[in-house]
Structure formats: structure tokens, C-alpha cells
Amino acid sequence: MTRYLSRRLVQALATIFAVVTVAFAFGRLSGSPAALLLTENAPKSQIVALNHRLGFDKPLWLQYVDYLGGLLHGDFGQSYRQVGVSSMSLVLERLPASLLLGAVGLTAGILLAMVAGLVIQLTGSRGLRTTALGIGAVRQAIPDFFFGLLLVLIFSVTLGILPSLGNRGITSVIMPALTIATGQFILYMRLIDNSLTEQSSMDYARTAYARGDSRFRVVLGELLPNAFLPVMTVAGISLGGFLGGLVIVENVFAWPGMGQLMLSAVYSRDFPVVQSGLIVVAGLFIVANFAVDLCYALIDPRVRLR
């Protein structure tokens, strides 16, 4: 077990290192940021002074070393726009909101998919399956941001029952979470449906039926735990795409999360904020993958964490 853990730790550090280096490289791509941060007709002396203050006149490798050193001290660079404020603190401030939305959205999506999949399996209805898949496919052809906008149009503008912006109380999370959940629905529904169908033709299922167990009991008790495994795998794999969708949804609903922060950092060319954001995202990835592996090991006795 310890070998496994230490291997994962090394992998994690390597990933973070890679992300950090790539972020550094990107950041230096635009040359000196000073010219961008100041106004158009700033005198050259000001540009030079700012460059010096930010450390951009040093040779590249030295900047890199300084940067790494700073990271080890917990210094992730200061925001260009909010002088004196650590970019990492800005990012971490927004982290809980993103986590909340992501968790609620993903959970709702998987739950929805599970309910649909189970109902289809229990009733054996082809019509239901076709309908569910059809609805899912229609939703898939609508971009998330447009779907969100439609929700706002219907529930905020026309009906006025839900708030359209920001995070003001529990009702605010409904529409963004719904957008995410419906988007994830088709992915997991197909997966669960296929998985349950595959499991239902296996010997252990037939044995259970032969024993006299009711359909209800067999599907929920025997098939579901096995069918759930691929869901976790896919959740882990599609994490990247999921995060992308999260950024978009945060933007549509002005949800105060990390994605929204990073986007506004793009508009204001505040690179350190983006940089810190990337590091946090990489960290989240690592934690999430690890969690998935752990869950897998707990649920599936065939897996051994070597």
C-alpha cells in the first residue's frame, strides 16, 4: 500500500511541476507584460520601471528559478490588476463556489441518469428508452451556454421565479446546476443503461432470478453495484471536459466561481491569477483521480492497489 501511495505522490508532484512549468512558459510568451498593463502612451521609463519591479528584465532561467523558489514559499505571484493581492488567495476565495456548483451539478446529473436507467431496466420499456435517449440527444445538440440562457429566459425573465445572476441563496444554484446536470445526463444514462443490460445477462443475475428474487431486488441489489463501476471510471476520465463546461456555466449565470475569475483575468490580462488557477485545477485533478481510484478499490474487490 505504501508503495502505491508513494508512486501516486511522485506522479502528482511530477504533474504539478509540469503544469507549473507550462504556465511559466505561457506567461513569458507575451514578452514583457508591462507594456500591456500600463496605458497606451506610457513613457518608456515607466515600462522599464514596471518590468524591473516585476522582475521581467532578468534572464529567463533566473526568472524560472525565482518563480519556482517563490512557489515553494507559497508565493504564487501577485495579481497584476489588484496590486499587492496574492493571485492564489483570489483563486482560493472562489474555489468553494465552483466546488459547490460542480458537485451539485454532477451529482444531480448522475442521479438523474441512474433513475432513468433503473426505471428503464425495471420496466423493460423500449419506448421509455428511446424517449430518454432522444431527449438526451436533443439536449446534446444545444450548447450549454444557450441552454442556460433559455432557462434564464423562461424562469427569470418570463416567470420571474428564479434569480438569474450570482449566488444569492439556495435558489441561485438551481438553474446552473440544472444546466450542468442535463448536460451530463445523456453521457451517464447511456453508460448505465448499457452497463445494466450487460450485467442482466450474466449468470449471477439469472441465478438470482431463479432463486425467486423479484426484479426489483435483483436490479437494485445485484446489478446496480456492478453497473456503477464504469460510471466512476468515466467520471474520472471526463473530468477535463466537465471543468470546461463548468467555466461556461459560471459565465452564463455570473456564478462567482474560479472559472469566472479566470475568464475575467483573461479580459484584464491578469496572468498570475490564471497561473494560480491552473495550479489549483491541476491539484483538483490529482485529488479527483486519486479519489476515483480509491473508490474503485473499495467497491471492486478485484482491484488491488499495488
Binding site: V22, A23, F26, G27, L29, S30, V247, M262, L263, A265, V266, R269, D270, F271, V273, V274, Q275, G277, L278
Partner: peptide
Amino acid sequence: IALAAAVG
């Protein structure tokens, strides 16, 4: 996002 923040 990273590249856009860096080079516009």
C-alpha cells in the same frame, strides 16, 4: 484561457 491571458 492560459494562452489568451498571456497573449490576448
